[in-house]
């Protein structure tokens, strides 16, 4: 066996692994979060007293549903990745826990009113930026929108959250459509 043949074989298996890892989060997960975010962010402007209740239910439920959709997509594609699923579960449950801890600042009265939402938005933006680096680069754009929205909310006080929620929902839907097309064409 020559070293050239070995290098060729190693190059071949590396290309196979790269090809197999091109599966990213399923489009359905992005559609799910587009709906959750559109409602959740609009509530800040239109029904602020329901915001906490909504996110208390929607965040963990959305997380569980995302995991279910991810597993379902994996089975349909014929590729199961327990390690990747575990990594996602640890990452997103950690972000949820940190967000709940940030909410405690409001419950204990250390921060008030709109500041609570702003602090939570920063925590989530940081979490999604991290997800963009670790899992799927599209999260970087979404985190960027949140940062821009955070800045806008510092200077404007009407419908900033609704606008931000709609922009995030549109971007998430566009990402889902783009991923769906890629899957259909087999370009992944």
């Amino acid at each position: 066996m020559t070293s050239e043949k070995i290098e060729e074989d190693l190059g071949y298996v590396k290309s196979l692994v790269d090809k197999s890892e091109r599966i990213m989060n399923p489009p359905s997960v992005f559609i799910l979060w587009a709906a959750i975010i559109a409602v959740g962010f609009s509530l800040v402007d239109f029904a602020p007293k329901y915001v906490g209740f909504f996110w208390m239910i929607a965040s963990p439920l959305g997380g569980l549903l995302s995991g279910f959709l991810g597993r379902k997509t994996g089975r349909a594609r014929g590729q199961l990745d327990a390690g990747t699923g575990k990594k996602h579960a640890i990452y997103w449950s950690g972000l949820l826990t940190i967000t709940i801890l940030a909410v405690l600042l409001g419950i204990r009265g250390f921060i008030h009113g709109a500041v609570i939402s702003q602090v939570i938005l920063l925590v989530v933006a940081m979490g999604w930026w991290g997800a963009g680096v670790l899992f799927d680069r599209y999260f970087l754009y979404l985190a960027g929108i949140m940062m821009a929205g955070f800045t806008a909310a510092l200077f404007l006080d009407r419908y900033v959250w609704t606008a931000m929620g709609m922009l995030l929902a549109i971007t998430l839907t566009a990402v889902a459509v783009h991923k769906g097309k890629k899957n259909a064409s087999g370009a992944q």
């Binding site: 071949y12 199961l80 990745d81």
Partner: peptide
């Protein structure tokens, strides 16, 4: 070799997925 490396990376792969990848 490719089959084993892919199965080392992923928990399980179906026949059709292996066929597509290889």
């Amino acid at each position: 070799l490719g089959i084993c490396v892919l199965l080392a990376r992923h928990t399980a792969l179906s026949f059709s997925r292996l066929k597509e990848l290889l």
